[in-house]
Structure formats: C-alpha cells, structure tokens
Amino acid sequence: MGRSLKRWFPVFVLPLSLAFLIAFVIPFLFGIYLSFTRFTTVGDASFVGLSNYVTALTKDENFLRALWFTVKFTVVSVISVNVIAFLFALILTRGIRGTNLFRTVFFMPNLIGGIVLGYIWQLIINGVLLRFGVDITYDATYGFWGLVVLMNWQMIGYMMIIYIAGLQNIPPEMQEVAAIDGAGPLQILRHVTLPLVSSSITICTFLTLTNSFKLFDQNYALTGGAPGRESSMLALDIFDTFYGAVGSEGVGQAKAVLFFLIVAAIALVQLRISRKREVDV
C-alpha cells in the first residue's frame, strides 16, 4: 500500500497539517522567539536577551508565588483525588446494589466545564463562609481549599472509573488464594491488589498531576486570583501578565516558556516510568 498511498499526501495529510502549522507550529516557534523580546504587538518586538526571564524569576514576585501555590495545590489534589477515587472504586467493585447508578453520579461532574464549576463552588463556599462574615476572596487559604474541594468533586469520578477498570482486570482467584493462605483483607490489599493495579495508579497520578498543574478555568472563575493575585496559579498568572498591563507581554511569554518546560519535564518523567513498566511486565 505504502507506495501508491504516498502520492495521496495532499488528500490525507495536508489539510490537518496546514491547520497544525497555523495553530501550533508557527505560534510555538514564534512564542519562543518573543520570549526574548520586548513587544506590545508582534510587529514592534525588540531583542532583549534573557531579561524577560530574569524579570519573571526575580523582580516579579507573582510568578514564584504562583508556582509555589500551584505545586502545593497539585500535591494536595493528586493525593486526595487518588486516595478517595481508589476507595470509591474498591467499594464499587464489591457488587453492591446500585453500582451502576453510583458510577454514573460520581462521574457526572467531570463533564461540566471549568467556568461553570468555578461559579457553582463560589456560591457554595461563599455560603459557608458567610457564617464567619467573610468570603472566598478574604484569604488565599480559602481559595486554595476551595480549589481542592472543586478539583476533588470534578476528578474523583473520572479516576474512579479508571481504577474500576484496573480492579476488574485482576483475576479473583489471586485474592482467593491469598485469603486461603491466611492473608487478612489489608494484607491482600497491600500485597496483591495494589501491585496489580499499579499501572492504573501511574495513569491516574499523572492525569491528576497535569490537570491540576495546568488548571486555569476553575481558578479564574472561583477566585480570579483574589485577594490581589495571591490565589493565582501559574496559568492564571501568565494570563494576567499578558493581558493585565501593557508592556509586560514579553515577561508573560517568558513565563509561558518556563511553564511549558515544567510541564514537559513532568511528561518526560511519566514517559520513562511507563516505558520502564512495559519492560518489567
């Protein structure tokens, strides 16, 4: 097929490749270039070397604060989402009544968009905080835990579905044999079940990790970074740097490149771990 198919390049590959060139390749390369310039429009870019990066990492305290906020948020939500989702999955693979209905309900929030989710939780969290006479913009800690709750509500069902698929792949005999050998439920969980779902654990960990790290819509709608920019995560801080004030576009683009490098590093670690696992199995 290869040889006769080759001539069909303009039909099969060209349309998508052109869109890819316009929407990704050129903007990506141009974005790297612009991070080394000062500009307000694409036309007036002047080369300034590394100064945007220096500004982003030293003079502009927002970036490092946002990075720290993002890291804390990511760690807390990765752990909480995965632990809770795994417990849900364990319960929902025991064959209790209504299992399908429960799965449907827990998964549903995942389909709702980030902006809408942000406003739903803003209403609820402000309603709770009302009793203490404050609202979510009073302190970045409220914004932080608000985001954690929101993220759990959104992601638990999704991860639960993946864990359920993993748990259902375990042959039941393995647990039965372990039980006959005298292992208690916790020992079975620790030495039989967990090792057998380790690939699901890797997948879910990295899915929550990248989703939490790149979060924008939820952050934007829930607190908008308030108070000040204290509850801004990285993506929101980059957005604010670009569009918040004229003249800082170059710094915004430099922050975006740094953001990309961190996300790429996470992806590389994930690739290595999953490659290694394929070899092991």
Binding site: F24, P27, F30, T41
Partner: peptide
C-alpha cells in the same frame, strides 16, 4: 518527523501559544 511533532504538541500547554495563536 511529522508524527513526532504531533505527539510533541500534546505536552505543550495552551498558555505557551495563547498570544501568538490569537495574533495568527
């Protein structure tokens, strides 16, 4: 090369191309 460029684009966050893409 084209295939790996497609795969590479998956790990690039939107903020990286946000400004240049909207200019484009």
């Amino acid at each position: 090369a084209l295939y790996y460029t497609f795969v590479f684009s998956m790990i690039v966050p939107f903020q990286m191309v946000m400004y240049t893409m909207s200019r484009m």
